[in-house]
């Protein structure tokens, strides 16, 4: 069966969302429980579900989440594409999806001219 226009649009939106990811500034705005997980994931970059549970168990009591709360938090972060889930069952792991730092909004001509100018200056500079 061929893809409908809606399927294609949905795919495009999914790709865009994935590319967006989360920024460190966004993390500061998260509720404390989600922020805790994101900070841990930032440090570790990639963790298995088992390792996340183990890290959670080692947290001080006031910061700790039970399994249900943790699963719910991971689901929220994954649905926003701030965490990426890979694998299935026992082997499932999570990695943080940080948003790319955008380039300058100045026109490309500006940068091309600057590049050219720097290269020319270097060529014309007297030897040290």
């Amino acid at each position: 069966m061929s893809e409908s226009i809606f399927d294609r649009l949905q795919k495009k939106l999914d790709v865009q969302k994935h590319e967006e990811g989360i920024s460190a500034g966004d993390i500061a705005e998260l509720p404390p429980a989600l922020r805790k997980i994101m900070r841990m994931m930032l440090r570790e970059v990639e963790l298995t579900y088992k390792a996340i549970c183990a890290a959670m168990d080692e947290m001080p009591a006031p910061d700790r989440m039970n399994r249900q709360e943790l699963d719910q938090a991971l689901e929220t972060l994954t649905s926003q594409n701030w965490l990426i889930r890979r694998g299935e069952g026992e082997g499932v792991n999570y990695m943080v999806n940080l948003r790319r730092k955008a380039g300058s909004s100045l026109g490309l001509n500006f940068w091309d001219s600057l590049d050219e100018k720097i290269a020319t200056n270097k060529k014309d500079a007297p030897p040290e």
Partner: peptide
């Protein structure tokens, strides 16, 4: 040129994070 290049194109913050780790 390297500085202007990174300012012009931006970069993948995830790669920086992986590098620090």
């Amino acid at each position: 040129r390297e500085i202007s290049r990174v300012v012009k194109t931006g970069y993948d913050v995830g790669i920086l994070n992986k590098g620090l780790s």
